[in-house]
Amino acid sequence: MSDQRGLFIYGIVPSDVEPSPDVPGVGDPPGSVTVVRHGPVAVLVSEVAPDAALGRPADLTTYQMLLDGTAAVAPVLPVRFGTVVAGPDAAIELLDAHADRFAAVLDEFEGRIQYVVHGRYEESALIRRVLDDNPAAAELADQVRGRPEEVTREQRIRLGEFIGRAVELRREAESRQLIDLLATLAVSTANRPPSHELDAVNVAFLVDADREDEFVDAVEEFAEQRRDLVRMRLLGPLAPYDFASAHQVTG
């Protein structure tokens, strides 16, 4: 490998992991993904130019696809996106400095995958619920209905505050109910911040692979009970991004 090229690091894996031949890495043009081994652990890497701009959406997609594909067959500890080291020697130094910790984390992730349950309220259905449940909000809605914005500005602001607070309270309740429902089916949970003001739930779960079907069935039941109010999505299986932060590697 050229001394002028760095190594982009994707994740820490057991030393017996072999990347598929010709898997493309990040960058333009992309380098092939290879592995640097040290004792019981290894790191998935690809060469990048020293001046490479590694912030494109395509690069993030490549990074995620590689880690998600790896997590389907072996434990993986994701490394923060954008981490680049000087070369193989620097990668080995990283592994050597944290070998025991990395091995312990990989043992923890063995046979486990991440899912994310994300739900967003249908705005019109949510507003109907808020107005049905709150006479004060319903009265404000009547005051602004069909009237110019400039003469109902104060009422609109107050109505928006009612709706915003209602979303926060419902989000807290929905997230608690979801976590309680899945508590026996998940090893760990991580609440994610809302990605949108109308988010109902956004929770990551670390799941034993042998309970995956039970977990998915339970999420589908949760979603069905709320289908008139919340658009639910189940994302996964994924690499354990939300459970790697305590062991984060920055290079």
Results as ranks from 00 to 15, higher is better:
Val23Ser: 12
Asp180Met: 09
Ala71Val: 05
Tyr121His: 14
Leu7Met: 09
Ser32His: 10
Arg192Cys: 03
Leu178His: 13
Leu140Ser: 12
Ala86Ile: 06
Tyr115Lys: 13
Val85Met: 11
Arg5Trp: 12
Gly27Tyr: 00
Leu159Trp: 08
Glu139Asp: 14
Leu178Met: 10
Gly146Cys: 07
Gln225Glu: 15
Leu181Gly: 05
Ala99Pro: 00
Ala90Val: 04
Phe81Cys: 06
Ser46Asn: 08
Asn202Cys: 08
Gly160Met: 09
Leu60Arg: 12
Glu168Ile: 05
Ala49Ile: 01
Arg231Val: 11
Pro135Trp: 11
Gly25Cys: 06
Leu95Tyr: 06
Val76Gly: 02
Ser188Gln: 14
Ala209Phe: 00
Gly87Tyr: 04
Pro135Ile: 13
Leu178Ser: 07
Phe109Asn: 00
Leu185Arg: 15
Ala103Glu: 13
Val85Lys: 12
Met65Val: 15
Val13Glu: 03
His247Ser: 11
Tyr63Met: 07
Arg165Cys: 01
Val45Lys: 07
Val84Glu: 01
Gly111Ile: 01
Ala74Arg: 11
Gly160His: 05
Pro194Gly: 09
Leu206Ser: 06
Thr189Asn: 11
Thr152Glu: 10
Ala99Ile: 07
Glu150Ser: 15
Gly111Lys: 12
Phe8Leu: 10
Leu94Ala: 03
Val187Tyr: 05
Val26Ser: 01
Arg5Gly: 02
Ala90Asp: 10
Gly6Met: 08
Glu212Ala: 10
Arg145Phe: 08
Phe8Glu: 00
Pro88Gln: 04
Arg101Asp: 13
Val76His: 00
Val17Ala: 03
Arg129Gly: 12
Val187Trp: 10
Gln143Pro: 00
Thr61Ala: 15
Pro75Ala: 09
Gln177Ile: 05
Val144Ser: 02
Glu108Ile: 02
Val203Glu: 05
Arg112Trp: 01
Leu106Gly: 02
Thr152Cys: 04
Ala136Ile: 06
Asp199Thr: 09
Arg165Ala: 14
His247Glu: 13
Gly164His: 13
Val203Asp: 06
Leu67Asn: 13
Leu238Asn: 01
Glu214Gln: 15
Leu66Asn: 06
Glu110Met: 06
Gly82Arg: 13
Gly25Pro: 03
Arg153Cys: 02
Glu108Leu: 12
Thr34Asp: 11
Phe8Thr: 08
Pro237Gly: 02
Glu139Lys: 11
Glu197Asp: 05
Asp132Thr: 14
Pro193Asp: 12
Gly251Glu: 03
Ser188Val: 00
Thr250Cys: 03
Asp210Cys: 05
Gly11Gln: 02
Val41Lys: 01
Pro88Ile: 04
Ala200Gln: 06
Asn134Lys: 01
Ala173Lys: 10
Leu95Glu: 04
Pro193Ala: 10
Leu178Thr: 14
Phe222Trp: 09
Glu150Lys: 14
Val130Glu: 02
Phe222Met: 08
Gly111Thr: 08
Phe243Glu: 11
Asp3Ala: 14
Glu212Pro: 04
Pro75Leu: 10
Val216Gly: 03
Glu149Ile: 12
Glu220Val: 09
Arg211Ser: 13
Ala138Met: 01
Ala244Met: 02
His118Ile: 00
